[in-house]
Simulated scan of single mutants.
Amino acid sequence: MLPPDSFLKQVPHALESRARLILEAAGWAIDSILIAFSDLESVALATPIDQPSTELEHRLFVHCWSIVDQCHMLRSVLQRLPVVHPEIAHFVQQTEGYTFVRNSMDHLAEKLDNLVRAKVTKPPIFGVASWIRVDPENIVGGKVVGFTSWNVSSGTVLATPGWTAVRPRRELCAAEPVSNFYFEAFEHSVDLSQLIDDIRVVVEHFDTTVRARIDDGIREGARARGIDPEEVLKLKGSGGLKIGFKIAIV
């Protein structure tokens, strides 16, 4: 998850309501992606290669589709910021495939006949999750000397089945047992591991450049109104409420 002091967790209350809602939604989507990716890593590490694991394999796709949905939402809200900086525009462009995948699944019911008739090569209907796993026997003297390339598919195979066997596109590390995550569905492929790297860049942009500009603007506006700017800046965060009622049955 985002750290508690991240700007997207501490959005100033003094911001115009629409901009504040966009930033809170972006923070929510990023948290959701980071949690889903962490869970995806755990499931990928726990999935056995030599025996059926229906529940674990289904969990893989629950997390993959969650990341797809939340990335689509993140892209959508970021494009509605009052000012879209180059760092944000680059992220939106790089993650366009997530919206293609999400829209294809969203309109699945309307496209059933076309999908059945299609003759093109494509992944199974609910996609293919791929990753690289480095097991203890693949590490010699602290160095990675081998790995297992995983591909797990889900759903009916229509027309000619096809997907890409994952190859390491980034250096393998002994301290990172699972990496290089990809997801393919509806003729589109997305790099989940790269998404996490891209999100870190976006978060850094908000925590530095955006925070500084917004805080300076709030200070200027507060001083113009004769208000202590630091008191105004203390009002931050989206808050939340959790209530539990203990009820005795007599």
Rank of each mutant, 00 (worst) to 15 (best):
S53P: 01
S53A: 15
T54Q: 15
E55K: 11
E55S: 14
L56E: 10
E57F: 01
E57R: 02
H58A: 10
R59Q: 13
R59N: 08
R59M: 07
F61L: 09
H63F: 14
C64T: 05
S66R: 15
S66V: 10
S66I: 10
V68K: 04
D69W: 04
D69I: 04
Q70R: 06
Q70V: 03
Q70F: 01
C71N: 13
C71M: 08
C71G: 05
C71L: 08
H72F: 05
H72D: 12
H72Q: 12
H72E: 07
H72C: 13
M73E: 10
M73W: 09
M73F: 09
L74Q: 04
R75W: 00
S76D: 09
V77F: 02
V77S: 06
V77K: 02
Q79P: 03
R80S: 06
R80P: 02
L81S: 02
P82L: 07
V83H: 09
H85P: 02
P86N: 14
E87N: 04
E87L: 03
A89D: 00
A89I: 00
A89E: 00
F91N: 03
F91Y: 07
V92W: 01
V92T: 07
V92A: 09
V92S: 02
V92Q: 03
Q93D: 15
T95C: 10
E96F: 08
G97H: 09
Y98L: 09
T99V: 03
F100I: 02
V101E: 01
R102Y: 15
R102L: 06
N103A: 11
N103M: 10
N103E: 14
S104Y: 09
S104D: 14
M105P: 01
E110L: 12
K111V: 05
K111R: 11
K111I: 01
K111F: 00
D113N: 05
N114R: 15
N114W: 11
L115C: 01
R117V: 02
R117D: 12
A118P: 05
A118D: 14
A118Q: 13
A118I: 03
K119G: 09
K119R: 12
K119N: 13
T121P: 03
T121E: 15
T121L: 08
K122A: 13
P123Q: 08
P124K: 11
G127E: 05
V128Y: 11
A129L: 01
A129T: 03
S130Y: 00
S130G: 04
S130P: 02
I132K: 05
I132A: 00
R133A: 05
D135T: 13
P136W: 06
P136S: 12
E137T: 09
E137Y: 11
N138P: 00
I139D: 08
I139C: 13
V140D: 12
G141H: 06
V144W: 09
V145N: 11
G146E: 14
G146A: 15
G146L: 11
F147N: 09
S149Q: 11
W150M: 12
W150Y: 15
N151P: 00
V152F: 05
V152D: 04
S153F: 14
S154R: 15
S154V: 07
T156S: 15
V157A: 15
V157C: 15
L158I: 05
P161I: 05
P161F: 03
T164N: 14
A165Q: 15
A165H: 14
R167I: 01
R167D: 07
P168Q: 11
P168G: 12
R170Q: 13
R170A: 08
R170P: 03
E171K: 12
E171Q: 14
